[in-house]
Simulated assay, not measured.
Amino acid sequence: MPEQLRTSTRDLDDLRLRVQTWLRGRTGERSAVSELERPTGNGLSSETLFFTARLAPDGREQRCVARLAPAPEAVPVFPSYDLGAQFEVMRLAAGHVPAPRPLWFEPDPAHLGVPFLVMAREEGLVPPDVMPYTFEGWLLEADPADLRRLQDRTVGLLAALHTAPLSPGRLDFLGPPGLRAHVTATRRYYDWAHGALPVPLLERAFAWLEDHWPAEPGPDVLSWGDARIGNVMYRDFEPVAVLDWEMAACGPPELDLGWMIFLHRFFQDVAEVFGLPGLPDFLTREQVCAAYRQASGYEPRDLDFYETYAALRHGVIMARVWHRRIHFGEQAMPDDPDDLVMHRARLEAMLG
């Protein structure tokens, strides 16, 4: 796998000056911004920047994370980036899970060329995507008891988030609730991302969903959307920050459960391709469902459907990411469009 997937064409020095000018307009002329840094292990869809702000008038320092909508020339992963919606979801989720503290949302693209939001930066460790946490690092070296605690506490985040009240009208900006609406939105996204070059394997997966539709989908809850350990920050194996809310929606709890189970399976498969042991007994379906049942009292169901749906969604996203890599000259277009799906063999087996 590549050491780092490119997500931006923006110059950091220019961005720092622009961020500082914007911050001074918000907080005072004596405010200043440190050098900007980009994370190296996670983040594919939008641009993330780390910096420290010295705020006027008292010089107080605030460690910050900024998320910027991607520039159009960077081949965006998603058709739109509603950072205002992410800002509001974080404010809502903070009452139920340790979401980052939102600081500012700037909808005006005049400052940095795109809308952006700024949140407080937490201290801790995040399981990396590149190189994957199943290859090396602190999770692989963890004591089994610590690893199990991390797993169960992370599943507990989902149970806590899913208790957030869905007040009428409060989450309308996330789109209509329900499984059918969620799958319909995914199909629209697929058509936007790959309509010019269809991916037959993903087309087959959409047909499979229709043939295996749950008889009675679960209740609608606030769904995190990108529910995986690579979007959680930990200290001493305890979650301290839940990150990345751009895929939030309202739908059955199994949307998050299936995504969490499949995404670990994806990284485990990558490790095994390279002959590495990975973490085969971590975040299994049985363990995730048992932990969720204990934390919530709800019995997850139809996980074959939801894990396959997660594999389909991930396939649509990663095929789009591969188009970005092609755009940046990091990879050639494959002869077979099904090879744009990194987990082709796994998805084929799930459909088989």
Rank of each mutant, 00 (worst) to 15 (best):
R153M: 01
L161E: 04
W104M: 14
E106W: 04
Y81H: 14
D152M: 00
D152P: 00
M131T: 14
F116G: 13
D108Y: 08
H96V: 03
F116A: 13
W104T: 13
L112F: 14
F135Y: 15
H111N: 07
L125E: 15
L157A: 07
L140F: 04
D143F: 06
A99Y: 09
P102I: 02
L139Q: 10
V118Y: 02
L161R: 01
V126N: 01
E141C: 14
T154W: 02
E88H: 14
R121V: 00
P128Q: 08
W138H: 13
M90A: 13
A93P: 04
A94N: 01
P132T: 08
L125T: 12
V114E: 11
T154E: 01
V126L: 00
R91H: 12
F87Y: 13
L117H: 12
L147F: 01
A93Q: 04
A94P: 01
V118N: 01
T134L: 03
M131Y: 10
V130C: 07
V89F: 02
D129H: 13
L83I: 10
M90S: 06
W104S: 10
F135H: 15
D143P: 03
A120P: 04
L147D: 05
V114G: 00
R148D: 07
L140Y: 04
Q86D: 14
P109C: 09
P109T: 08
P102V: 03
M131N: 09
R148C: 03
G84H: 14
R149C: 02
L147A: 13
L158F: 15
P107D: 03
V114R: 12
P128C: 03
V118P: 00
L103I: 12
V89L: 03
Q151S: 10
P127N: 01
P79R: 14
A120Q: 13
D146S: 12
A99C: 09
V155K: 03
W104Q: 14
M119W: 09
Y133G: 07
A93C: 06
E122G: 15
L117K: 11
T134W: 01
D152S: 00
L92A: 15
V114A: 11
P102F: 02
L139F: 11
E141Y: 12
D82M: 05
R153A: 11
V155P: 02
A159W: 10
A99R: 08
L103V: 11
M131C: 09
L117Q: 15
G137T: 04
A145V: 15
R149H: 07
L161Q: 02
D152K: 00
P132R: 08
D143M: 06
G95N: 10
E123H: 10
H111P: 07
D152L: 02
Q86G: 07
D108E: 12
A159T: 14
T154Y: 02
V97H: 01
F105R: 06
L158E: 05
T134G: 03
V155L: 03
D152C: 00
D129W: 12
L117V: 10
L157R: 07
G137P: 06
V130W: 10
P132H: 07
V130E: 11
L147T: 05
A85I: 05
Q151R: 10
F116S: 12
R149F: 00
R148I: 00
R148V: 00
V114H: 02
V118E: 02
V130G: 00
P98A: 08
R101M: 10
Y81L: 02
G113R: 07
P132M: 05
L157C: 09
V126G: 01
M119V: 11
L117P: 11
P98W: 09
L125G: 05
V114Q: 13
